[in-house]
Each structure stands twice: as C-alpha cells, then as structure tokens.
C-alpha cells in the first residue's frame, strides 16, 4: 500500500511568531518544524502500511528555503521518503495555490491514499486537503478518526459532533485526519540517525509544470488586508453555588456541546 502524507513545516509555536508588516504574512525565516497536527497522519500512515503487510509512506511538503527539518522528524518516525516543493516564486501562495502545487507533487507519487491534517497550526484555513482532492479529481473524506483499508476500499470513521459516521470510499482518495486520534510514536534514536539518509526529492514549480503567475503573491486570490489584536480575554463568570451549581455546570457544558 502506498500512502502519501501532506505535512507542513511551520515556525516553532513555542517561539513567539512575527508578521511581515508589508505583506501581513507569517515570518518563516527561522527553522521550521513539523506541524504537530500532521504527526497524526504520519502515524496513521505508518500503521496502515504495517497492517497491509508492506508498502511505503511518502511525505509531501511545500516550504521555503529547501527546509527539511520538519520532514526529518517525520522521516525519523518511519516514513520512507519525501517530496519537497521549494521555490522562491511560492512566497505568498494562498490555500488554493498550495493545493495546486501539492496536488501536482502528489501526482508524481501516485499514492493509493493521501492523508492530511484537518488544518495547519499556523494558517488554520482548513481548506487545503479538500482543495487538493478537487485539483486531483479524487474522493475526499474529512475528519477521520479511524481508517482501515482492504481490497481497494477505505472504511473510515468520520468524527461528528454527536459521534461518528461510517464512510466507505474507493481508493485513491484523500482523507483528512482529526488531531489526537492516535498517539504519534516518538522518533527512535536509530530512526533519527537513519532519517538523514532517506531520500528527499526537491523540486521547483517548473518541475511540476506550474507557471509562476499561478502561485505566490501574484497568483493569490486571497489577501490579508489588515491584522488586529485579538480581544483581550474577559474575566470569567463567577457562579455561587446555592444548591443549583451542578445544573449551571451542566447547562454550560451543554451550551458548549461538550455533553
């Protein structure tokens, strides 16, 4: 079974981020790391290939400056190889442009299954996976919490507010994976040492047949026109328990749709 996983390399969330005031985009000059929300897809891919008794896991990523630090982490977890699209012309690319680029890169891999996180931890558009499926003309299932594959078909538990749906779909398909549904393995020491030797196919947009005018700031249909500070958090509501506190808690949790 051949599984591809879309992984994003993002600025370290532990370090305060900066915006470029001229473009209102995130400064990505420092080392980038694997987006934790993509580690769930990597883990699921490794488990699927193990369950299938063989196959490969290929990472596909788009990042500036030929950045591979985050890819190394996922390769250390056990992925076999990676395709990295890096090109100066890609700076400022919007979600749809990113989907076109990743779709073209995934086309070179020809996987049976593509996994992606629901949304990245730095951009949060939550649209790229479905746009990739649209660009590639394949089926897409969102919010997967469990995936099984057999005989060219996928059986997926798709998380909903009330529980989950059971969905089946033929491969090839793209599935977005809900965060936290599996416990990503910690890279082993030997995996870390081996990761440096695993192949990373570095390509530019010309290799993918993409015109520079279709991507980057020039091709972007999306523009961040202004950035304002989020509203400061307000003090919470203090409820004094006069015998009905439990009900207030239950009502509050119901309002949040937690219960």
């Amino acid at each position: 079974m051949k599984v591809a996983v879309c992984v994003k390399q993002i600025p370290d969330p532990a370090v305060p981020g900066e915006l470029d005031p001229s473009t209102n985009t995130l400064n990505r000059d420092d080392k980038l790391i694997l987006d934790e929300s993509d580690s769930f897809g990597v883990e699921l891919a490794l488990q699927l290939v193990e369950a299938a008794g063989g196959g490969s896991v290929t990472l596909v990523s788009m990042a500036p400056r030929s950045e591979v630090s985050g890819l190394r982490t996922a390769l250390a977890m056990g992925a076999d190889d990676a395709v990295l699209v890096s090109d100066d012309a890609l700076a400022g690319t919007d979600a749809l442009g990113t989907a076109k680029v990743l779709g073209a890169a995934l086309g070179r891999v020809e996987p049976d299954l593509i996994l992606a996180g629901v949304e990245s931890s730095d951009g949060y558009t939550g649209t790229v996976p479905e746009q990739i499926a649209g660009v590639m003309g394949i089926a897409s299932v969102t919010f997967a919490k469990k995936i099984e594959a057999s005989d060219g078909m996928l059986s997926i538990q798709r998380q909903t507010d009330d529980g989950y749906d059971e969905v089946t779909c033929p491969m090839p398909a793209l599935v977005s994976v809900t965060g936290g549904v599996v416990e990503p393995r910690y890279p082993s020491f030997k995996g870390i040492m081996a990761a440096k030797k695993k192949p990373v196919d570095q390509v530019g947009i010309a290799d993918l047949g993409i015109d520079a005018s279709a991507v980057g700031f020039a091709g972007s249909r999306q523009e961040t026109v202004a950035v304002v500070d989020a509203e400061a958090r307000e003090a919470g509501e203090i409820v004094i328990d006069e015998g009905e506190g439990f009900q207030r808690i239950a009502d509050f949790l119901a309002e949040l749709k937690v219960i």
């Binding site: 982490t73 250390a76 910690y186 020491f189 870390i192 040492m193 440096k196």
Partner: peptide
C-alpha cells in the same frame, strides 16, 4: 559519538517523551 544535529533531534525526542 554522533553529530550535533542528530543529538539535537534525539534530545528533542526524549524531552517530549519525558
């Protein structure tokens, strides 16, 4: 002995595990 970049990855992995 391993090189510093590998060690950094290993330390990060152990730190997360711990």
């Amino acid at each position: 002995m391993i090189d510093e970049s590998d060690l950094q990855e290993i330390l990060a992995s152990v730190r997360r595990f711990v």
